[in-house]
Every structure is written in structure tokens, then in C-alpha cells.
Design a protein around this nucleic acid. Structure first.
Lengths: 213, 213
DNA sequence: GTATGTGAACCACTTCACAGCA
DNA sequence: TGCTGTGAAGTGGTTCACATAC
């Protein structure tokens, strides 16, 4: 029984994987935790400790084989297969998410798009035809979907999340500005640039205006 | 000399503020840490302790005055004024960011948009005319800008960040999939939905397919 | 010589639990 | 009585430092 692995560790693994993929593209064959850490702004010990939860991937005196470690991380994270998603909320934000080219190359595929506004339903956006949100349940019953993306206005977001969870979806990527309520076995990650800005301003407050020396 | 306030605390304050704003819109006058915590999935003690770094805003036996606490948080976070931003990278993502309606109501204003692609320069997007990235420095010298938004492809993101930092910008909202290198007095928040997805898959890996009961 | 893997020490944040006040 | 504010205790994650292996 492996001991419990901290969530923060899991959150860092994709960052390591991303850096290793870049090194690999550059033809790099080996990295030390030292060098990887410098590149990522993480201590070498952090990296070694994180990896040690999952195995012994390095060679003393040498470092880590880039390709090998990248494959291991993909396996650990489940990135060695494709994941399916549905998007709910086809406003400006939803359209941008559909158009976003960053998901597919990483194996995340949007299978369906849903909206409550019947003037949007039926519209073709990229490769998707927008369906009415009432059909969400039956679509989820018919098709295997791993992840729900929520890009609705705040007031309806919780209801949408309830519907997704009710249909068995265990992971939510939440763009709506609410604190989602989900059962403990459902995973939620929030994407909220406004919150990110609003915490940075705390530190800016004390500063001199930008540009002044 | 106030003792050092943990960054995690600062990150939570905007979340509290958002919830308080919602309560206020609903006409709610008072909340207890208990209730606010239940709403946000945070322990009441957490909330009280976080707030205690900044003052004593509650009344024993009653709770917190919603309006009052919201104002205090705005003040603490510096949200009682407007913040100016520039966007670099006017691709699909950059356009979506410009079109995004969530910044302005919170006091975050995009003053300029920049791109290296001369076929994009001059284009009018929303209220902005795209400028060449070479003009970034002179614009930043002429205009006070608090925050830089980076929405470029990964390979040029660090150079753009260097330019922003070189011009005195102390906060970066980074949408590019890189680990930014900045001096210690510059603040960076990353927005990366792919990383969010890639850590959730770790937990999904073990699960049964969605929808199976 | 060099860099990993890891128990132990350390540090930071969270939670407890209760005194104090409305 | 009810809920805040807060030292003290507890917990969990990070860093250290060194034995180990290449």
C-alpha cells in the first residue's frame, strides 16, 4: 500500500513533464535534478523527493534519462491515453475553449458542447454542434466522458456541476467564478484569471508605479 | 512591523471577497465564519485566522458585517482602485482575453495589445488597436502599466516577460506554458488549463469509466 | 567525482480549544 | 449564549545532509 501522496506533488508532476518534453525536443538525453530545478524554480531536493514517491528513475552520478523519465511521468499521470471531455456553456469563453488548440495535442478531446440558450443550440462551432443542456444527461449516459468543462455564468454553474456529477463525471475543469460543491470523490480545478489578478494586486499596492526608477 | 503574511492567505482573500460580494447582492448583512466556510469549503478557523492577520473585523456572538468586511478586503487587496494592463500575444487566446468581459467590472483595464506578427498589427480588436511588440518598451515608458498579460507561444514568452520586467512591470499574468524566470520582486501567476487537466487525470486513472454504476 | 534516494530535522500552515466580548 | 480572535498544538510538506551507487 503506497503511502498517501500529497496533492501538491501531483500538481508538480505535469510541470516536470512539460519541462522534460521541451528538453527532449532539444535532443537532451540526461538531466540532473539540479538543472531541472533551476529551470523550473524548484529545489533539486523537491524534485528528487517528489519522484521518489513513485520509484527510482535516476542514476547516481549521472541524473535522469529525459525520455525515460518523461514516459514514466506520462504513465503515472495517465497521460498515455486519451481523455474525453464535454463543455457546458457556449458563450464567448466557451467558444474560446473550443477553439483553443492546446488540449488536443495533449490528448484531451472535447466530444460535445452544451448550452441552455436555444438560439445557440444547433450552431456549429469548430468541429462541434451545440446541443441543448437538457440532452447532457442522455449524452453522458451514451458516451464515456471523463471530464466536464464548466464555462457558464456563475448563477447556473453549480446546477451544471450537479448534473455532470449526477451523470458520473469525476473531474471538473471549472471556469465559473464560484466555489463548486462536489462529493469528495470528484475532482475540481478552478481556472480564474480574476482571482489570480486580485491576489497579485496585494503585493503591487506597496510598489512604486511601474517604470519609475 | 506586521509579521510576514503567508502567500496562501493572500490567495484566499479574493475568494472570500467574491463570496461576500455575492452575499451582499443577496441583501445579506451578517455572516459567521462558520457559514462562509461552509459555502467555500474552508474551515471557519481558517477564515478567522486569515482575517486576523489584518485586523479584527468581526463581532463576537454575531459574526461579520458583510459590507464592512468586503470593503476591508478590497482595501487590503488594493481592489479599491483601477489597475492597468497590457496584453502581449494577439492570437486566438489573446483575442479571447481581450473579449473576456470579466476583467473590466473588477477594475482591471487592458490599455494596449501587442504582437510580433505584422499582419496582425494595426488590426482593431474590441476597443484596442494592435501595436507591434517593438513599441512595447516605449509605450510602457509613456504609460503607467501595472500588469502584463502574456499570451504568446511558448518559445517567445520568456523574451516577452523579460521585456515587460525590463520596463518595470512588477506583475505578470502568464498564459504561456512555460516556467517564467523573473526577479524576486516580480509576481507571476500562471493560467494553464492543460496543467490542471493533467493533474486531475492522475486521480481519474484508477476510477471506473464515468457513467458506470 | 558526481548526483540520486531518503530518513530526519525543520518549517509553515492549519486546526484546536478556549478566553473574551457582544 | 454565540461567535470571534488567537496562542498553542498538531499536521503536512520542504529542505537538509549523507549514505549509496554509478
Amino acid at each position: 500500500m503506497p503511502i498517501e501522496i500529497p496533492d501538491v506533488v501531483i500538481d508538480r508532476l505535469p510541470v516536470y513533464a512539460r519541462a522534460l518534453a521541451a528538453l527532449d525536443r532539444n535532443g537532451r538525453e540526461v538531466v540532473s535534478s539540479q538543472e531541472l530545478g533551476a529551470q523550473l524554480g524548484v529545489t533539486p531536493a523537491q524534485i528528487r523527493k517528489d519522484l521518489s514517491y513513485f520509484g527510482r528513475f535516476g542514476k547516481q552520478g549521472r541524473g535522469y534519462n529525459v525520455k525515460r523519465l518523461l514516459e514514466e511521468l506520462h504513465q503515472i499521470l495517465g497521460l498515455d491515453r486519451e481523455w474525453t471531455m464535454v463543455l457546458v456553456g457556449v458563450g464567448q469563453l466557451g467558444r474560446a475553449i473550443i477553439a483553443y488548440g492546446g488540449f488536443a495535442p495533449q490528448g484531451f478531446r472535447i466530444l460535445g458542447a452544451f448550452d441552455a440558450d436555444s438560439s445557440v443550440v444547433g450552431e456549429q462551432i469548430d468541429h462541434l454542434r451545440v446541443q441543448h443542456v437538457d440532452e447532457l444527461r442522455s449524452v453522458l449516459r451514451a458516451t464515456h466522458v471523463d471530464i466536464g468543462i464548466v464555462a457558464t455564468p456563475a448563477p447556473v454553474a453549480q446546477a451544471v456541476i450537479d448534473a455532470l456529477v449526477g451523470a458520473g463525471v469525476k473531474a471538473i475543469l471549472n471556469y465559473a467564478p464560484i466555489a463548486a460543491h462536489v462529493p469528495r470523490d470528484v475532482h475540481v480545478k478552478d481556472i480564474d484569471p480574476v482571482l489570480a489578478l486580485q491576489s497579485m494586486t496585494y503585493y503591487l499596492k506597496g510598489e512604486l508605479p511601474a517604470g519609475s526608477k
